[in-house]
């Protein structure tokens, strides 16, 4: 006990320590292994990283990933902001309904959601049938198997992740501050742009970073809704590992991804307590 006190360690730690070690070992081990692979395969050196500057397909793929993630982030944050705003200004009963609906989408598997989109927006799906039936289009609109399809699926998946931190920051706003702005002569639009929006900026930034991080690693949605034509980094890695067997390239991309995510997480943690982001609206 004496030494424990001196270490200032809660005795509970000893209980979880074995599991902690196992988890850390099984988690950190492979990560270090990947880091190692990325500089040793196929031969020692930084060749894999040099490919980033030399390989045209690699650059195109990274650019596609970045573009899709950015568009997804912007769209999710804009839509998420509107939803959060509507929630804040809905009556109590309606707000509870909206939160339940939002959480329900959280619980549905990404696979189910992706296939739902495929059916809804496919060539013979209800949306295309309705459009054709109404005579608005003469042949089916290509919603799926392209970048548009990937974006629809990803934005849909990401919106709740944008809503929760934004909602939390909206709940932090003192109503009297808004009243003060109106009292000083600012109308609704001016109050929104000059007071409301700046005060919710931490939530917007947190939501955006969160969505961006999650988008970076997206695999199922781009693979299915992109129909093989939209190659993003996660799928690219999988192809390198499973088909072309260029593990060095795969490891290099994995390290790149990990580094990017960690950097973003660091920025995020500076802006807002992480517990608030992942704890969502419950403060």
């Amino acid at each position: 006990m004496q030494t424990l006190r001196r270490l200032n360690l809660h005795p509970g730690w000893w209980l979880v320590l074995p599991f902690l070690l196992v988890v850390m070992g099984m988690f950190l081990g492979p990560i270090l292994n990947i880091l190692w692979l990325s500089v040793t395969l196929p031969e020692p050196g930084l060749d894999n990283y040099a490919a980033l500057f030399e390989s045209e397909p690699l650059r195109r793929m990274l650019w596609t990933t970045l573009r899709i993630c950015l568009i997804t982030t912007v769209m999710s944050v804009i839509l998420g902001y509107s939803i959060a705003y509507a929630m804040m200004h809905a009556s109590g009963a309606n707000r509870n309904w909206m939160i339940s609906l939002l959480l329900v989408t959280f619980w549905i598997s990404v696979l189910v959601r992706t296939f739902s989109w495929l059916m809804l927006l496919g060539r013979n799906g209800p949306v295309n049938n309705a459009l054709m039936g109404a005579g608005l289009v003469s042949e089916p609109v290509e919603f799926m198997r392209n970048e548009l399809g990937v974006l629809i699926g990803m934005v849909h998946y990401m919106i709740p992740y944008a809503v929760l931190p934004i909602l939390a920051s909206m709940q932090n706003i003192d109503n009297r501050v808004i009243a003060a702005s109106r009292n000083l002569g600012a109308g609704g639009a001016q109050t929104f742009w000059r007071i409301y929006l700046p005060l919710t900026r931490p939530g917007i930034v947190a939501g955006a970073i969160l969505v961006f991080i999650l988008s970076l690693g997206f695999f199922v949605t781009p693979a299915i809704l992109g129909g093989g034509r939209v190659l993003m980094v996660a799928e690219y890695i999988s192809v390198q590992v499973l088909i072309t067997l260029r593990w060095g390239t795969a490891a290099m991309l994995a390290v790149l991804l990990l580094g990017g995510v960690l950097a973003l997480m660091f920025i995020l943690s500076r802006l807002i307590p992480l517990s608030q982001v992942f704890g969502g609206a419950r403060r």
Binding site: D174, R176, V177, A179, A180, S181, N183, I195, P198, L199
Partner: peptide, 13 residues
């Protein structure tokens, strides 16, 4: 009308 709110309600940003 000018108003001084309880708690002041200054714009924190």
């Amino acid at each position: 009308f000018g108003m001084v709110f309880q708690g002041y309600a200054l714009f924190p940003h």
